[in-house]
Design a protein around this nucleic acid. Structure first.
Lengths: 168, 168
DNA sequence: AGTTATTTGTACGTATGTATC
DNA sequence: TGATACATACGTACAAATAAC
């Protein structure tokens, strides 16, 4: 492993961040795997613990890693999987902004898609979709009425979707 | 101003974060205002510069503050205004996750809402809505067909919405 | 059950670089 | 030029959670 460039214009923590990111993308570590501890990164890359920590925290921030005090730092689930969760979690963003959001699910049922919908969403003929109508609220004020057609393959069943809807 | 509790279970940077947040919510500072520098916060609250910085960075993270090197730290635009941008920027989240999202707007026009929609979204009788049909894609794969009815008051006109749609 | 080692979390101090004024 | 403010980076110490013995 080549050393980091301590005289570079690019901050050390950023260089380290990239190294870690690459290692994950190259599948050197898999989701759930423990990556080296801060102390180990210190030795391996010749940086201070603070710098190692900062690099890790950046990656935690973007959802690539997660940390458990006393245990270690681990590779998070792949981006796609995460973002599929995020698809239905607009309100999570709102909550992070302190907006106390609430989505009221008006309708949620499996339907046979019309030809038009099937074409738009590129489904096979036999695939079903779930239709969900949601009234999206922030601070108890509705702001958006939304109808979504979700390929059934994306979520295993209605219950799961409902659950996602709740936490979303 | 009461001092922070250095012996509390709640971390200092978290306490300071709350103080700053409250000051902003109480309108002691307005959007665009400069808040005290790290050094000033050090003196005012009796914490180290690192701790002051950490508190600020947390608030930057959630979009309450923003910083400009050499100038200072400033209060960001109100949350609601920000989140209204976020309403139509699912894809921003996806891009942050590296998913190269693209929303194809299939339809976008001003319509008279049906009574049902008007009731759901709590509109006055004379208010119009914008109907938007979007095909949401990630990595060139469509995953969701969405119909939204957006109160006209939320966005000034179709052009603005389209713009938001583009960057979203 | 208790002790120790490991790992992350918090907090301090210091120094230097970079951008703005 | 100098003063101010944020950015990066080092070091240190102790606390808290976990795991292993």
């Amino acid at each position: 492993m080549e050393p980091l460039q301590h005289d570079s214009l690019i901050p050390l923590y950023h260089q380290l961040m990239e190294r870690l990111k690459v290692s994950i993308e190259k599948k050197q570590w898999s989701p759930g795997d423990k990556i080296p501890s801060e102390n180990q990164l210190m030795d391996q890359f010749g940086v201070s613990r603070n710098t190692a920590k900062k690099a890790i925290e950046e990656l935690v921030q973007v959802g690539i890693l997660y940390r458990i005090q006393g245990k270690g730092t681990f590779v998070a689930k792949p981006k796609l999987q995460q973002s599929l969760m995020g698809f239905y979690s607009f309100s999570k963003v709102l909550r992070e902004k302190g907006l106390n959001p609430k989505d009221i699910i008006l309708k949620i049922e499996e339907v046979k898609p019309t030809a038009k919908i099937r074409e738009a969403i590129q489904l096979r003929e036999d695939e079903h979709v779930i239709e969900m109508k949601r009234l999206r609220c922030a601070n108890n004020e509705p702001y958006l009425l939304e109808t979504s057609f979700i390929p059934k393959g994306v979520v295993s069943d209605k219950e799961q979707l409902k659950k996602v809807g709740d936490i979303s």
